[in-house]
């Protein structure tokens, strides 16, 4: 177990290094820091303003190796950036100058309030619906449901949001269409609609996937054994199919758990929820390169964390798997 963890972490090191190199190349080599400054300050910015902007953010250092006499060779943009990220120092916003660790910490809670309930409720609903579809075994209902799933998958998120917002908030006026207040239980009324929309937008793909998963389990030999023992169809489904299906489901679902903290780019922007998705959206509009770069770095760490978590959950749930 310990050696497994160690090997896994060692495997992550080159990947994180690769991601860091990639982002550095993308942000500082494909475009020059000067071009970046012009994109932020506008094309008509004076050379002086550009220089000041670059200097304040440390972007005026030599790119890879410092060859200026009397300066240490490692005082370059690349090395200082890597050292900073290696210590999990995310830096400061290009636009506001606020430390990004603070920005991200503040955004995490609203994001989690949106994504965790949506994830849990969505998972329960799609597993339930998929099981029900497998249970009824009705050709017509099956065809209708799979068409409906494909249809649900084919609608882009923003269309769901626009229609949902318009119908629920403006026509029926049940919930606020916009805004967010972190204030005990009353926060829920701001979150209800975005959570519902997040569930609906993911439902089609999930139900389809889980249905296929459960159908595959249902064709296995041990299901025949269970039926030959006299187990009722409902128990076959809820005990034998579900447990095996859920183990396969782990590979698909657990990896996405860490990303719940990143929130939802579109939904948070639409509803004015000050989460991490909104932070990123604003950064795209600004543009704030430091925020996007830090998000990429953080996102890759979360992805690798998800891989690890998947392995651990798999080993815990499936008696056939041992980590070593």
């Amino acid at each position: 177990m310990f050696s497994y963890l160690l090997r896994r972490l060692l495997f992550f090191v080159p990947i994180v290094a690769g991601v860091m190199l990639l982002t550095f190349a993308l942000f500082f080599m494909v475009q020059s820091p000067k071009a970046m400054a012009h994109r932020v300050l506008g094309p008509k910015a004076t050379p002086k303003a550009v220089e000041l902007w670059l200097h304040n953010r440390g972007y005026d250092k030599p790119l890879l190796i410092n060859q200026i006499p009397d300066q240490p060779w490692h005082d370059s943009l690349f090395i200082s950036q890597m050292r900073r990220l290696a210590t999990f120092d995310l830096g400061r916003s290009d636009v506001t100058g606020r430390p990004l660790s603070e920005v991200f910490r503040q955004g995490a809670l609203p994001s989690l309030l949106l994504t965790v309930p949506a994830f849990l409720a969505g998972l329960a609903m799609s597993v339930g619906l998929a099981l029900y579809l497998v249970f009824i075994r009705n050709a017509a209902a099956d065809l209708f449901a799979s068409l409906l799933c494909v249809a649900l998958m084919s609608v882009p998120v923003m269309v769901y949001v626009i229609f949902g917002q318009y119908l629920v908030a403006q026509v029926f006026n049940y919930f606020p269409a916009f805004g967010f207040q972190l204030n005990g239980w009353s926060t829920a009324k701001f979150l209800f609609l975005p959570i519902a929309l997040m569930i609906v937008s993911g439902l089609g793909a999930d139900v389809r996937l889980f249905r296929a998963l459960f159908l595959e389990e249902l064709g296995q030999d041990y299901i025949r054994t269970a039926r030959a023992k006299g187990v009722s169809s409902a128990v076959v489904l809820l005990r034998h199919v579900l447990k095996n299906g859920l183990i396969n489901l782990i590979t698909l679902v657990v990896a996405s758990l860490p990303f719940l903290i990143m929130g939802s780019l579109l939904l948070e922007n639409f509803f004015g929820i000050p989460g991490l998705g909104n932070v990123l959206f604003t950064a795209i509009q600004m543009p704030d390169f430091a925020v996007v770069q830090a998000s990429v770095f953080l996102g890759s760490l979360l992805y690798l964390g998800g891989l690890l978590l998947t392995d651990l959950c798999y080993a815990w749930a499936d008696p056939r798997i041992r980590l070593h």
Binding site: D221, Y222, N244
Partner: peptide
């Protein structure tokens, strides 16, 4: 209860979990 079965492939006929 009255009629019981033994199948061909024991490795897949028993529930692995």
């Amino acid at each position: 209860g009255k009629i019981a079965y033994v199948f061909q492939e024991p490795s897949t006929s028993l529930n692995p979990v």
